[in-house]
């Protein structure tokens, strides 16, 4: 297996507080991986550090997109990280609330299209073609995500579960090789969580996109993941297959007081 994301020695300090502590992590192509750990372990900080929202204090984030060169990406701006093929969702859903569902996905196509000011004003055949392609592609993604009946709804009027799926759809529109999902099942009922499980598998199997998810729903994590990383106090305390993690005493200790319901 070839790694598509390699994180080495990643450290992030906020003033005196060390939120990430010499973290190492690897994601292989075609893998579904999960990042778990108690609240405040630094999982979201980790996402923010590798997607350019925070600049890590030290360490390396290296990506090897399929068919492209290996590249060190820490220090890049978030939009450049996305352009290079790593897209994400947010823990506290960040859609564009007063844009329509379709437009939300069309925003994801922004970095894969080029038409500029002149194109907008003159709207020549090239621009029109590009616009139509954006619309069609976005609609296609919405269909895949089971959101096509909402196309012209405003994003903020969507049911909660659909908003979470729309965030994933928007991330897919940027043509990523890796999607980072931040608690995608938070607030979902068991039925919705099951659908999400199927959806994530389909994204991997049909689109060939790898996924890394932060998740608290252990059942989902255990059933989906090929590999699990466990964090506590900014450190990686364990990694392995779901079976290994379940029986790892260090993990059980970290979760003491928190149930592992698997």
């Amino acid at each position: 297996m070839e790694p598509i994301l390699e994180v080495k020695d990643l450290t992030m300090d906020f003033g005196g507080l060390r939120a990430l502590d010499h973290l190492d992590l690897e994601i292989d192509r075609g893998e579904i991986a999960a990042l778990i750990g108690p609240n405040g372990a630094g999982k979201t900080t980790f996402f923010n550090c590798i997607t350019g929202i925070y600049i890590p204090t030290r360490g390396d984030v290296v990506i090897s997109p399929p068919g492209k060169k290996r590249e060190r990406i820490n220090g890049l701006k978030p939009n450049h990280v996305t352009e290079r093929g790593m897209a994400r969702t947010f823990q506290n859903i960040r859609l564009f609330p007063s844009m329509t569902v379709l437009e939300n996905v069309m925003i994801g196509r922004h970095c894969r299209t080029r038409s500029g000011i002149a194109g907008a004003v003159f709207r020549g055949p090239g621009t029109r073609e590009e616009e139509q392609a954006v619309v069609d592609k976005s609609y296609e993604i919405l269909e895949k995500m089971g959101l096509s009946r909402f196309v012209n709804e405003l994003a903020r009027n969507l049911p909660y579960g659909a908003q979470r799926r729309l965030e994933i759809a928007r991330a897919m529109a940027t043509e990523p090789f890796l999607i980072l999902l931040d608690e995608p099942a938070a607030g979902m009922n068991p039925q919705e969580t099951y659908e999400l499980d199927q959806l994530i598998l389909r994204i991997r199997d049909e689109e060939g996109i790898s996924l890394l998810l932060i998740e608290h729903d252990m059942q989902l994590v255990m059933s989906l993941s090929d590999r699990i990383f466990v964090m506590d106090y900014g450190k990686k305390i364990a990694q392995g297959t779901p079976e290994e993690i379940k029986n790892n005493p260090v993990v059980i200790k970290a979760y003491l007081g928190e149930e592992i319901d698997a």
Partner: peptide, 9 residues
């Protein structure tokens, strides 16, 4: 923030 995360400069 979402805008940047979607690849917009």
């Amino acid at each position: 923030i979402a805008c940047q995360a979607m690849g917009i400069d």
